[in-house]
Amino acid sequence: MYNYRRNFKPMLERILFAISARGRPRLLEWLLVSLLLVPAVTAVAASGTDATAATRLKAAFLYKFCIYVEWPAASFADASAPLVIGVAAEKRVAGELEQVVVGRRINGREVQVRRIKSGDDIDGIHLLFLGQAALAAEPDWWSRVQNKPVLVVADSAAELTPGIGINFVPEDARLRFDVDLVVAAEQGLSISSQLLLVARRIRKVE
């Protein structure tokens, strides 16, 4: 059975010893370390721009979606309450959005960006962007937005993942999106036909 002192303490000590320095590294060890750094160094050398084109494009789409979606009046505290975009697991997209929403209004409302972590309260959010990591970490996000007026936008989620209103889909080097009107209808959201015209695929209410 479990015996910390007999079984595990010596092991942990050996592990710590193994990763602590054992004298001067030999040539081979230096070589190994430098080779391991090759991918990292290449990556840094190749980096330049901050946000990738895809990040900027996603941010732009999210903002645009807010223009073409109508939320029930009850989802706003009052006529001047802000429209809130929640972004989960996509810090760069959130960063881009935060910069561009400053001073912009949609239907007279200010636009706010809120960064969401798994488990955070999502009350008051109108559009929720779930990065792939967020969806992977918490596949049942949908249960938290079910029948609430929250448009969930996902990034390359599996088709018909529950609760996803709009799904970004890469297609031929372009970023397209699918719209699920069944989900939108359940949530009391109304999506303009202008947005539907650009959608790649639409799931319609039967």
Binding site: A53, A54, K64, R174, L175, R176, V198
Partner: peptide, 14 residues
Amino acid sequence: LEELASLEISSVSK
């Protein structure tokens, strides 16, 4: 929106 949907981004090329 149409213009956005037609822009090329290499990172989703796969």
